[in-house]
């Protein structure tokens, strides 16, 4: 139990996917202009991370590994993630049209969110069992959502008219991401991974 809690904290804070591994930066900069959309994106990514890593783990352990097809993991994992995102997109489009519009292109782009493929690959690389994989994915998703919420909160309080012209938009977003990442360095080495 203690290992699982440490794994969760490690995946959420120490090796935060956005601020320490620098995976999934596109949605970090793209969908953080409004807090609501940012948190929803975090929840959506968490859901896909959970689903994709579970299915990938099962496929790897019971199909790819026994058949010696380990080299197919990239293709298979991307396929799994893409189909998960397709399903999620249909659900959001039907149930939450407002959110669907707020996400825009970034919803189908969850497919290419490297944080999710990252979770699926790291789970195999670190040889986690199924329970650890799930905890790792949920921790990663929680950390992702936290960073998205922090970034969106900060960006909502920016004063765009006072920011120097060259820094408006992505520029100031990257500076802020850099400072947040510096702050997250405090957690580095806290839990050996």
């Amino acid at each position: 139990m203690k290992e699982l809690i440490l794994l969760f904290i490690g995946s959420a804070l120490v090796n935060n996917f956005l601020l320490a591994r620098f995976l999934g930066i596109c949605s970090f900069l793209g969908v953080t202009s409004q807090l609501r959309a940012a948190v929803s994106m975090g929840v959506a990514v968490t859901g896909v991370m959970f689903g994709a890593s579970t299915v990938s783990w099962l496929l790897y352990a019971y199909v790819l590994d026994p058949l010696g097809l380990q080299y197919l993991q990239y293709v298979v994992f991307i396929l799994v993630i893409a189909s998960m995102v397709q399903a999620l997109e249909q659900v959001i489009k039907a149930r939450m049209p407002g959110l669907y519009r707020a996400f825009g292109i970034y919803l189908p782009l969850i497919t290419t969110n490297c944080a999710i493929l990252g979770v699926a690959l790291l789970v195999v690389q670190n040889e986690y069992n199924l329970l650890s994989s799930i905890v790792f994915a949920l921790g990663g998703g929680a950390g992702f959502t936290l960073a998205m919420a922090m970034m969106a909160g900060l960006r909502e309080e920016f004063r765009p008219r006072e920011i120097p012209h060259a820094f408006r938009g992505t520029g100031i977003g990257l500076v802020t991401a850099g400072i947040m990442s510096l702050a997250f360095l405090a957690f580095s080495g806290m839990i050996p991974m």
């Binding site: 920016f158 004063r159 008219r161 920011i163 120097p164 850099g178």
Partner: peptide
């Protein structure tokens, strides 16, 4: 520069 002016100067900095 990075802590204050890129955000618009005194009073606009989040950090």
């Amino acid at each position: 520069v990075l802590g204050k002016q890129v955000y618009g100067g005194t009073g606009a900095n989040p950090f």
